[in-house]
Design a protein around this nucleic acid. Structure first.
Lengths: 187, 187
DNA sequence: TACGACATGTAACCAGTTACATGATTTA
DNA sequence: TAAATCATGTAACTGGTTACATGTCGTA
């Protein structure tokens, strides 16, 4: 039978389970430490998704009440592994962005007078720069452990994130500066 | 009364209407020529959203059956303008990404043997590089008309898009090259 | 003993896409 | 005359978040 088409979040779960059996809670922790920078997932997605994967035979679950706490641990099956590999081999969909800060910057021209507009634009750019800084810092903190892992894909994603955010912070501050100068000149 | 909280797409509509009255169809065209690179919108969103804005008094609509085709044109009200300005003054939400290609790159380590994994990773990076190239090209094509507009916010967004995509294409090809070399060395 | 972390799940809601449905007008 | 473009809308669905509900265990 053809695999029922899965959401990307289902593949995130399969991806983490491919590295070893885990509880739903642990999957969520793994997401929060890694993919959340480019693919977040909430419990409200993970648990129902785990159930669907189980129903589809891509994951097996067993109770683990031996430890201090009772929980279920989930294990990827051969079909699950096949589904993961097939998904990896398929080309990814076109990347769609939804960036509220760019939206505000785009419409900042409507914020009022020329001076008001350019200061609105500059403050959006400054907010974006700070955000880029913060994310870059969080990602840099992860670098040593990811290097230690020795997983080239994971390191490549991390580097993309770090360098993108460093570029973004620089770029936004440059453009914000230009906008400020324009405002001063027109004053 | 406090404005009922609006979706970002509602503000996109208000933003375009702030530049002059338009039909729903024309709003969709405007989106497709500009914001779609960072905020897309479908008819299935635009028309119901226009109705909500009308119900909330932020937009007024009138029939325009004078032209060749019958249509409704929508006009932003004073309250609509106020809502737009208030939204612009508020800080934007934290930017959330959902990037399927980064997800595949992240899990490419699970694609099979070391060689299979790094070639999967490299092909995802090549796909991402091509995508960056294409978007950069589309954005560069818009540059002259946006410069002519003389709207600094719109130009700032465009430059962000162009330079980000140029950076992205370069970066992805560099990293893909490194991955390929690693694979050759380990062969 | 209370707080934080572990642990699992559901229900209501929200934003958005896709497919469907309809029909007029312009252009090749 | 057929196809593209103009034009408006709805319904079904999807993927996701948030809030709720419940309970345990370790520790300060």
């Amino acid at each position: 039978m053809p695999a029922p088409q899965l959401s990307n979040t289902a593949y995130v779960i399969l991806g983490f389970l491919d590295a070893g059996p885990r509880s739903g809670y642990e999957i969520k922790q793994a997401v929060d430490r890694s993919t959340r920078f480019f693919w977040a997932a909430s419990y409200g997605q993970i648990y129902p998704e785990l159930k669907r994967l189980r129903d589809g035979g891509l994951v097996e679950s067993e109770r683990d009440d031996a430890g201090a706490r009772k929980r279920a641990i989930h294990r990827i099956t051969r079909e699950g592994r096949r589904a993961l590999r097939d998904w990896l081999a398929e080309p990814a969909a076109v990347t769609e962005l939804r960036d509220e800060k760019l939206l505000k910057l785009f419409f900042s021209d409507s914020a009022g007078s020329g001076k008001r507009a350019s200061s609105t634009g500059a403050s959006v750019l400054e907010a974006r720069a700070s955000e880029h800084d913060e994310v870059a810092e969080q990602l840099r903190a992860l670098e040593p452990s990811v290097i230690a892992l020795g997983k080239p894909g994971k390191l490549a994603v991390l580097r993309y994130g770090i360098e993108f955010n460093e570029w973004g912070a620089r770029h936004c501050r440059n453009v914000a500066g230009e906008l400020e100068r324009e405002r001063e000149e027109s004053a």
